[in-house]
Computed example of a mutant assay.
Amino acid sequence: MNARDIRSLDVGMLRTFDALMRERSVSRAAQRLFLSQPAVSASLTRLREVFGDPLFTRMPHGVAPTARAEALAPQVEQLLAGMARLLEPQQDFDPATSNRIFRVAGSDFASRWLLAPLSRELVEAGSAIRILWEPTQTGSIAERLRKGEIDLAVIARIHRPQDMQTEVLYEDHYVYVTRRDHPQAGEPVTLESFCAVPQVFLGYGTSTLDDLIDEELARRGMRRHAQLAVSSFGQILHQLRCSDHAAVLGRRVAQAFASELAIRALPLELPRYQSMVCWDGGSSGDVGVEWLRGGVVGISVSGALA
Rank of each mutant, 00 (worst) to 15 (best):
A69W: 02
A69Y: 03
E70N: 13
A71M: 03
A71R: 04
L72I: 04
L72N: 02
L72C: 04
A73L: 06
A73V: 03
A73M: 07
P74F: 09
P74A: 12
Q75D: 03
Q75G: 09
V76I: 12
E77S: 13
E77Q: 14
Q78I: 04
Q78K: 07
L79W: 03
L80K: 01
L80E: 00
A81L: 08
A81C: 07
G82R: 09
M83Y: 03
A84N: 11
L86D: 09
L87V: 14
L87F: 12
L87Y: 13
L87M: 07
E88R: 11
E88A: 15
E88I: 07
P89H: 02
P89Y: 04
Q90M: 14
Q90D: 15
D92Y: 06
D92L: 07
F93W: 13
F93E: 03
F93K: 07
D94N: 08
D94W: 05
P95N: 12
P95D: 11
A96S: 11
A96C: 08
A96T: 10
A96Q: 08
T97F: 10
S98L: 10
S98V: 08
S98G: 08
S98K: 07
S98Y: 02
N99F: 03
R100M: 10
I101Y: 01
F102V: 05
F102L: 15
F102H: 09
F102Y: 15
F102W: 15
R103Y: 09
R103T: 14
R103G: 01
A105S: 15
A105K: 00
S107G: 15
S107P: 01
S107M: 03
D108S: 04
D108G: 04
F109G: 00
A110V: 02
S111W: 03
S111G: 14
R112D: 10
R112V: 07
R112C: 11
W113Y: 13
W113N: 01
W113V: 13
W113E: 02
L114W: 00
L114I: 14
L115Y: 11
A116R: 13
A116D: 14
A116C: 14
P117L: 07
P117W: 05
L118C: 05
S119K: 11
R120I: 10
R120L: 11
E121A: 15
E121P: 09
E121Y: 06
L122T: 13
L122C: 14
V123Y: 06
V123S: 12
V123P: 08
A125V: 15
G126I: 08
G126E: 06
S127A: 12
A128S: 06
A128H: 06
A128M: 07
A128L: 04
A128G: 09
I129W: 01
R130G: 00
I131V: 12
I131W: 01
I131Y: 01
L132A: 08
W133I: 04
W133D: 00
W133E: 01
E134D: 09
E134K: 10
P135R: 12
P135H: 03
P135T: 09
T136F: 11
T136C: 01
T136H: 04
T136Y: 04
T136E: 05
T136I: 12
T136V: 09
Q137Y: 13
Q137N: 07
T138R: 10
T138Y: 13
G139L: 05
G139H: 05
G139R: 02
S140I: 09
S140L: 14
S140Y: 12
S140H: 09
I141T: 05
A142Q: 06
